[in-house]
Simulated scan of single mutants.
Amino acid sequence: MTVVVLTGASSGIGRAAAKLCAARGDRLVLAARSRAGLEALAEAHAPGALVHTVDVADRVSVEALADAAVARYGRIDVWVDTAAVMAYGRFEDVPAEVFDQVIATDLIGSANVARAALRVFRSQGAGTLVLTGSLVGHVTAPYMSAYATAKWGQRALARTLRQETRDAKHIHVCQVVPGGVDTPIYTSAANYAGRIGRPPPPVDTAERVARVALKLADRPRAEASVGLTNRVVEFGFAALPRVYDALVGPMMRAVALSGRPVDPHEGNVFASRTRDDGGPARWGRGAAAAGAAAAAALSLAGAVALRARRGR
């Protein structure tokens, strides 16, 4: 049976992955900051799983998690890291300590996980690490400076690690790259934008992203994008940056920030808190139509740019 470590397992994509792994009989190590959430998950879906409280931003905590997994099962075959936090707001409005903690969790946390996983993988000669990136690791968007900075850094880290593990053909470093996903990260985020965040359409389920992450674990490749318009948005970002920059601000305000007002707060950036789960239907058809229109505009702009380049 496959031994799988899941960091960020208490909610969202990590929780969905835990359910899928349990259903197929994997031996599980469930880790996150919320022990209560992990214990509830294990009791309902993964009896016998090792539950371990961890903050990925704390390197010592992550190393202890790796040691606990090996002590219980003798090895780690797959490590899927989905732990992440987010902060909304203009860069100058987000407190420095909040910005820094988002980086600590989403980038340094990924580095801590990778360091611990690779230590075990090197000792046993095999293993697959799956990091959860983001479309915002390929493009930029206003009001998400800390998250975008972290995810761009994580993508650079993943590629570097793939280069450095070319000498070990059975060690793999992968990234799953989702766009909008129906998870609590948006409503749990720190917020200094005045309006509660929401996943931009089209919105995928956490289960779909989890399935793709586990598929990477079974058949490793560098990256798997999850999101109908991801490639279109990336193409517009790269092909015609001025048009993209003109459109992305209005698009974010229309589809990535809800109409629900909120006072400034630090969300779950520094500590776990009760999650406010939602669903993509909550955003309504207007938001979906606006997102589709913006994606179409980016696609058209990119196509025009590509045509112009070919005509030179």
Score class of each variant (00 low, 15 high):
R119N: 07
R119M: 02
V120D: 00
V120R: 00
F121N: 01
F121R: 01
F121G: 01
R122D: 13
R122G: 12
R122C: 11
R122W: 11
R122P: 11
S123Y: 11
S123A: 15
Q124S: 09
A126T: 11
A126L: 10
A126Q: 11
G127F: 09
G127S: 07
G127M: 01
T128Q: 02
V130G: 02
V130Q: 00
V130T: 02
L131I: 08
L131N: 09
L131R: 03
G133L: 08
G133N: 14
G133W: 02
S134Y: 11
S134A: 14
S134G: 15
S134W: 03
L135W: 02
L135C: 04
G137R: 01
G137H: 07
G137Y: 11
V139M: 05
V139C: 07
V139Y: 02
V139A: 08
T140F: 09
T140S: 13
T140I: 12
A141R: 08
A141T: 12
P142V: 02
Y143F: 15
M144A: 12
M144D: 05
M144Q: 12
S145A: 13
S145Q: 06
S145W: 02
S145T: 10
A146S: 12
A146W: 05
A146T: 03
A146Q: 03
Y147V: 00
Y147W: 02
Y147A: 01
Y147M: 03
Y147Q: 00
Y147I: 00
Y147P: 00
A148S: 10
A148Y: 02
A148H: 03
A148N: 05
A148L: 02
A148I: 06
T149P: 00
T149M: 09
T149V: 10
T149H: 05
T149S: 11
T149A: 14
A150Y: 06
A150T: 07
A150N: 07
A150G: 09
A150D: 08
K151F: 11
K151V: 05
K151W: 11
W152A: 06
W152Q: 05
W152S: 04
W152I: 06
G153W: 07
G153L: 08
G153N: 04
Q154A: 10
Q154C: 07
A156K: 10
A156C: 10
L157V: 03
A158M: 04
A158T: 02
A158D: 04
A158Q: 01
R159I: 09
R159Y: 13
T160Y: 13
T160S: 15
L161A: 13
L161M: 13
L161F: 14
